[in-house]
Amino acid sequence: MHPCIASGGATWVIFFSATPWHGGAHRQHAIARQLATTYRVIFVDPPGLRIRRGTSIRRVEHAIWHAELPTTVPFGRHLPAANSINRRVAVAVLRRWLLRDPAEVALVWLDEDLAAGCASRIDASAVVYDAADLDWTFTRRWNRRHLRRSLSRAVAAADLVLASSAALPARMPASRQTPVVLPNACDPGHFTPHGPTVPRPVEPGRPLIGYSGSIDSRAFDGELVAAVARNRPDWTFLLIGPSTRAGRKPLAGLTNVLLTGPIPYPDLPATLRVCDVAMIPYRLGGLVDYVHPKKCYEYLALGKPVVATPLPALTGMTGVVRLAAGADDFSAAIASTLTETTGPERVAHRRAVATANSWSVRGEQLHRLLAGLVR
């Protein structure tokens, strides 16, 4: 291994992300920023579905460069040959750009399964694969073989395999490296109990139940929320985030369910601060119940009480999060939470849990893993 890796600073991390840099404040962005405390990071956007001829690699933060590389052939997500061509072109562009700086490439970071072929084409000291999701579950059945094969290649290429949830490794292919769970986290400095608030969208005294995230049919349980909303017409449910037609369908006609649409990340705390209870109504037993929702820690950082369905990743948090399955139990859990007094001690306890699960704490854990990897 290269000795300069341990000292950091001069070496590069090539970060192949499944989410564009401008796609929001996701796990990929947070981890890239933690890596940037030691390395210089090139954050590579995924190829587009359509042809993109231009190349842009520019510094966006102190030690992070954002790379938008050519998409030579369309539909690489669906066609293995097209994906292979696009990745070869991307690596060639990156290697030419890196010739301007003789520094070593410490890590190839694979967040996107389809980028697995890039690992063998870049002379790096180590390869890290971070399983934030099961990408093959986000496509149609006819395309799953292509993506599952890419997942197997990414896992096989890695010297370190990470997983965002303790429920993920059992759903991943066998690998020569035992996956290490590095859970999602939050930025407690951004999600604080005190700060600006938006106008409360309900009359005083009417309970407001908040949710932030996608309103879709994969993870979000619209049927559950609709049933609870019908049970409790005296509550209002504020759903913050982008929505799909399938996600909105169960909620149609419910006047006590408000959809805000996407809200910029900087403005999200101000909207959540006006809510009395925050919820995570996710589906159970499906393709995505392995998730470890970072919104749980964001809610807690705001000091908000949380009611969630009993996802495997949340079952160890029963002391601070109220878990309930089914419309009746979920309604009862919210009702019980609304009757509790939220004093400074409760808020401080929730904040303490969130702070113990901050991205800076995850960054320390990550750097310890990388130090062991490069020795």
Rank of each mutant, 00 (worst) to 15 (best):
P242H: 05
A18W: 06
S120G: 13
A227I: 06
V73C: 10
S360I: 00
A25W: 07
V225K: 01
P233N: 08
L79C: 14
P281R: 08
T318M: 10
Y129I: 00
G261Q: 05
G241D: 05
A167D: 13
H62I: 02
T260I: 06
I334P: 00
Y129T: 03
S150G: 14
R230N: 11
S120N: 10
P201W: 08
K294Y: 01
P344C: 07
T197W: 06
F15M: 01
K304H: 09
R96S: 13
D329A: 15
Q34W: 02
Q28C: 13
S125H: 02
P47I: 04
D113G: 02
H367V: 05
Y129S: 02
R145H: 15
G303N: 10
S358Y: 10
I263T: 04
L182N: 06
T139K: 09
A156Y: 00
G261H: 05
A18P: 12
G241I: 11
P305R: 12
A327V: 05
A32M: 01
P344A: 14
K294F: 00
L49M: 15
P196K: 11
P183H: 08
P102T: 04
R87Y: 01
V277D: 00
N357M: 03
R346P: 02
V277T: 07
K249N: 14
I334C: 11
H78P: 02
L272A: 08
D289I: 04
V89N: 06
R206T: 14
R218Q: 15
V198K: 01
R58E: 15
G319M: 02
D234C: 04
I42T: 02
P207E: 09
L35E: 03
P312S: 07
L366V: 11
D45R: 01
L182H: 06
V277L: 12
K304W: 07
